[in-house]
Computed example of a mutant assay.
Amino acid sequence: MIEYDQQALESIRDGVRGLCARFSDDYWRAIDQQQSFPEEFVKALTDAGWLSAMIPEQYGGSGLGLAEASVILEEVNRCGGNSGTVHGQMYNMFTLLRHGSDQQKQHYLPRLASGELRLQSMGVTEPTTGTDTTKIKTSAERRGDKYVINGQKVWISRIQYSDLMILLARTTPLDQVKKKTEGMSIFLVDLHQAIGNGLTVQPIANMVHHVTNELFFDNLEIPADSLIGEEGQGFRYILDGLNAERTLIAAECIGDGRWFIEKASRYANDREVFGRPIGKNQGIQFPIAEAHIEVEAADLMRWQACQQYDSGLNAGASANMAKYLAAKASWEAANVCLQTHGGFGFACEYDVERKFRETRLYQVAPISTNLILSYVAEHLLDLPRSF
C-alpha cells in the first residue's frame, strides 16, 4: 500500500494551523450562537487551496489524496473550529471525480477549485427510509432531453451555501430490478435553477449548528446531461463517496478528541482545589489518559482506511471501523473534558459545551454506530444479515 511522506503531512498541519489561528474561539462561538455560516473562514480555506486539495492539478487543484484531505479537516477541529461547515466540499466531489464525464469534470472542477462554485450538499437520506438507501422513493423519470424528479429528502446539509448538489434517485422502480441496489442513478443538480422551480427547501432547527433541511421535489426538471456516469449504477458510485466521507469524519472526530484532551489537560494542570492541581488526582488524570489512548488507537484505523482508499483498494471495512472508533473516542474525550471542567464545562466561554454538541452528532451521522456494527457482523464475521 501507499506510504505517506510524514514531513509533507506535517507541513499541511502547520499550514492549516496557521490559517485557523486567524479565527479565534470568539469567532466560532459567535457563529454557533448566531446560527450563521462561517463565510470568512470558508473563503480563507478556499483561497489557500485547502478545499481543492483532492482535485487533480489539471483542473486547478493540488492532486492530493484522502490522507492529506483528512489531515486538513482534523486540524480544523483540533484548532477549535468546526469542519462540518466545509467537509461536504471534500467528499461530495468524489462521485464527480471518479465517475463524471470528461466534459463534466472540465466544466465543474476548475470552478470548484477556484471557489466560484460550491458542492456542499448530497441528497440521499429520505424520511421513510433513513439509512436503508436501497428503499429510496425519490424518482427520476427520463423525458426526452430531461429528467423529472419527484420525491422528498431529509437531513440534507448546507443547501443555502451550496451551488450544486449530488442527488441519488430511482430511475427504475424497485419492483423492476433484479437486485435492490440496482436502478438508482446519480445527478448533479444546479440548486440556483432548481429552488423555486420544483424544489422546495425547508430548514430543520437542531441542537448542533449544522445547517440541515428537508427537500421536496415536485416535477423538478433537470437536463439529461446532469446524470453522472451510467444510469442505474448510482448506488455503486455513491459508495466511493461514502467511504471517503466516513474516513474524513473519522479524522474530524480525531481532531475533536485531541482538542478535548488538550483542553482537559491544560485545565487539570491549572485548576487548584484543596491546595493542589486537580490533575494530581488519579480520578482526574486516569480518564484523560484513557481518552488519549482511545483517540490514538482510532487514529491508526483512520490511516489504514486512507492507505487502502488512496491505493485503490476496497476501504469499506476500514472506513466504517475508523468512523466507529473515532466517533466513540471523541465522545468519550468530550465527556472527560466536560467532567474535568466541572460546572465551567457548561459555560459557553470555555467552548467545551459547543464542541461537546458538535462531536456528539457523529455517533448518529453520517452512519449510525449500530449500522456499522451490522456491517462488520455481516461482511467481516459472516454472521446472518440482521435487517
Rank of each mutant, 00 (worst) to 15 (best):
E182Y: 13
Y59A: 10
G84S: 09
L220G: 11
E221T: 05
P110G: 09
E39A: 14
G84R: 00
E214D: 11
L383G: 08
F41N: 00
Q106M: 04
Y375V: 02
L112V: 01
D47C: 05
D240C: 03
Q339Y: 12
L199G: 07
C306M: 05
T131I: 12
Q103N: 04
Q308P: 12
R13A: 08
V352Q: 10
I195F: 02
Y91L: 07
G183S: 07
T85I: 00
A48M: 03
L191A: 08
A8H: 13
D190W: 01
D25L: 02
K135M: 15
G65I: 02
I284T: 13
S70I: 01
K179Y: 13
A30E: 14
A298S: 06
Q152A: 11
D270T: 11
L167Y: 14
L188Q: 10
V295T: 09
P366E: 04
A8Q: 14
R266E: 14
S36W: 09
I186N: 07
Q307H: 10
A244T: 04
I55G: 01
L73G: 08
D382Y: 06
L19C: 06
V71H: 02
K323W: 15
R354W: 02
A347P: 00
G115K: 04
T134Q: 06
A251P: 00
Y267P: 07
E68I: 11
M321K: 14
Q34L: 02
Y91K: 00
H379I: 00
I12V: 10
M165L: 15
A251V: 01
Y91A: 07
S330A: 15
A251I: 01
I249W: 07
L313K: 14
Q193L: 08
V42T: 09
R360M: 09
E332W: 00
S226C: 12
A264S: 07
N82A: 14
R111C: 09
V42M: 08
E116W: 10
G65N: 07
T85K: 07
R29W: 04
L164G: 06
A289K: 07
N320V: 01
R17G: 09
S386Q: 12
G144W: 06
R98N: 10
G130N: 07
Q193M: 04
D240Q: 03
R143T: 10
L9G: 06
I293S: 11
A44W: 03
E245G: 03
D218R: 08
G84W: 00
R354F: 13
P287S: 10
I55F: 04
T125N: 13
